[in-house]
C-alpha cells in the first residue's frame, strides 16, 4: 500500500515481479481445480431451483482467502495473497473476461437472425432500468439517506454510471458516496446474488427469454452468473438462445448504458427526488 502506484502497463509486466504472477496463478489454478471438482449442483428450493456453478465457488473461495478474511489468522495465506497479488487479480479479471466474450460472440453469431428479429424488445427493455429508482429511491429515503440516494439508486451503478456521477458531482460528494456504495456491493456480491437470482427467477412466471434479456446489465461477470444459472435451470434446448440474448443485451447496454444514465435515468431520478424527498424529511423541511 505504501509503495508507489503502478500503471496498467507496469502491472502486467512480469519483469522483476515474476513471483507475484506465479503466486497468483498457482492460487487461481488450485481454486479452478477445486471448484470444478465440486461441479454443478442443482437443488430444488420452494417452487424453484437453485443452480450452483463452479464459478460461484470460485468467487467465494477467492474472496475468503484474501488478507482481510482468512489471511488475517493464517500467515501462509497472507504471504501468498497480498496487496500486490490482489492488484494484479483486478487486471486479470479484465483479460480473463475476453475468452468468455469470444464464446458469447459464437453464441450470438449463429443466432443472429433470431436476435435481430427480437430487436425491438432488446431496445425497449433498456427502459426497464427506470424501475430501479422508482422502487429503490423511496427505500433509500425511508432509511434516512438524502442525496446519497440519488447516486445509489439511479441505475445498477456499474462503471459507466460511476463515471457519469463522478464527473457531474465529484466522487467525494454525497451522490458519489451513494453510487460507490452500490458499485462496491455489486462488485463483491453481484455475481453471487445474480447467480442465485438467475435460476430462481424462473418461478416468477416470466418467460426464460425475457429473463435472458434482463441478464445483460452492463457487467460481464454478473451477466455470466445470471445467464448461466438461468440456462442451467430451464430445458436444455433453450440454452443457446438464452445465452445469445443475454450476451446481446449486455453488449447493447455497454453501448447505450452511459447515454441512458445521462439523458434519462439521472434527470428522472433527480426529478423524482425533488418530489419525494420533502415527504420523507422529518420536519417537512428540505
Amino acid at each position: 500500500m505504501s509503495k508507489k502506484e503502478l500503471t496498467e502497463n507496469e502491472i502486467i509486466s512480469m519483469k522483476g515481479r515474476l513471483n507475484v504472477f506465479i503466486k497468483l496463478f498457482i492460487t487461481v489454478l488450485f481454486i479452478v481445480i477445486f471448484s470444478e471438482l465440486i461441479g454443478v449442483k442443482k437443488y430444488s428450493l420452494g417452487p424453484g431451483s437453485v443452480v450452483l456453478l463452479p464459478m460461484l465457488y470460485a468467487v467465494i473461495i477467492g474472496l475468503i482467502i484474501t488478507p482481510d478474511i482468512l489471511g488475517k489468522p493464517l500467515n501462509f495465506l497472507r504471504n501468498l495473497i497480498s496487496n500486490e497479488e490482489i492488484e494484479l487479480a483486478g487486471t486479470m479479471v479484465m483479460l480473463a473476461l475476453l475468452p468468455l466474450g469470444v464464446k458469447y460472440g459464437t453464441l450470438v453469431g449463429p443466432n443472429i437472425v433470431k436476435v435481430v428479429q427480437a430487436g425491438p424488445a432488446f431496445l425497449l427493455q433498456e427502459l426497464g432500468n427506470l424501475l430501479t429508482p422508482v422502487l429503490a429511491l423511496p427505500l433509500a429515503l425511508l432509511l434516512g439517506l438524502r442525496r446519497e440516494a440519488v447516486g445509489g439508486t439511479v441505475s445498477i451503478c456499474r462503471e459507466p454510471t460511476l463515471g457519469v456521477i463522478g464527473e457531474r458531482y465529484g466522487m467525494n460528494s454525497p451522490e458519489g458516496t451513494g453510487v460507490l456504495g452500490t458499485y462496491m456491493i455489486g462488485t463483491v456480491f453481484g455475481t453471487i446474488f445474480f447467480g442465485l437470482l438467475g435460476s430462481f427467477a424462473v418461478t416468477s412466471g416470466l418467460h426464460p427469454y425475457a429473463l435472458a434479456m434482463a441478464c445483460g446489465m452492463g457487467s460481464g461477470s454478473m451477466m455470466t452468473a445470471a445467464s448461466s444459472s438461468l440456462s442451467a435451470a430451464v430445458s436444455p434446448e433453450m440454452k443457446d438462445t438464452i445465452l445469445a440474448y443475454a450476451a446481446t443485451s449486455n453488449m447493447l447496454t455497454g453501448v447505450t448504458g452511459m447515454y441512458s444514465v445521462v439523458f434519462i435515468a439521472l434527470p428522472f431520478t433527480n426529478w423524482y427526488y425533488t418530489k419525494l424527498a420533502p415527504k420523507f424529511s422529518k420536519k417537512g423541511d428540505k
Binding site: 475468503i64 483486478g90 479479471v93
Partner: peptide, 8 residues
Amino acid sequence: ILAFAGIS
C-alpha cells in the same frame, strides 16, 4: 474469471 474477481 470469477476466481480472479473474488481475489481482486
